[in-house]
């Protein structure tokens, strides 16, 4: 059973209370179609468990086959600097079929973030060290593809449909 090797810290993007009995960590890629399919399921799972669940998202871009995954992650991290990570995250997955430079700018405009600075951050790959750090932490934890989920530190090897995720989380409560 693969175990999460990198503990959740305040450097992570976290939704839900610190003291929640269950933590769900996702390693995801904004251009991965399977991650796109998992996205609404995760949202439903969060609604289902409410304050009992803490959700953490970490980057795992497969940049060679998904060239837009990295700039998308840069966009989310840029928004994160303005405490708007999750709104950008939602915009990116909800508009995954339009992923690209225009969408990244549109996200910045929607969130009222400075567009020129976002463009600069993407060009300079400002957040690449953080994104790569997420990625390598995932590799060392046995992430072998995306999306990968860990429930209270244990890899969830079942499917990521709503019912399976709920069942797996339920056993931790």
């Amino acid at each position: 059973m693969a175990m999460l090797k990198v503990p959740v810290t305040s450097d992570d993007h976290i939704q839900g209370p610190l003291e929640a009995p269950v933590t769900l960590v996702e390693y995801g890629d904004y251009q991965c179609p399977y991650c796109g399919l998992a996205y609404p399921n995760v949202r439903r799972v969060q609604q289902h468990f409410g304050q009992q669940l803490r959700f953490v998202f970490r980057h795992f871009p497969l940049s060679q086959i998904h060239p837009l995954a990295e700039p998308a992650a840069e966009t989310a991290e840029f928004a994160g600097d303005y405490k708007r990570f999750w709104e950008a995250h939602d915009e990116l997955y909800e508009n995954q079929e339009r992923l690209g430079a225009e969408l990244f700018v549109a996200v910045a405009i929607t969130l009222k973030l400075p567009v020129a600075e976002l463009r600069d951050a993407i060009t300079r790959q400002k957040y690449t060290p953080k994104i790569r750090n997420d990625f390598m932490g995932g590799v060392r934890s046995g992430v072998n593809g995306t999306p990968a989920f860990f429930i209270n530190g244990m890899r969830h090897d079942g499917s990521f449909d709503f019912e399976q995720l709920v069942l797996a989380i339920q056993t931790q409560l």
């Binding site: 890629d29 991965c32 179609p33 497969l62 990625f135 593809g145 995306t146």
Partner: peptide, 11 residues
Amino acid sequence: VCGDQMTLYNE
């Protein structure tokens, strides 16, 4: 694709 071993190693 997304769970492919060689694609992962490439990264």
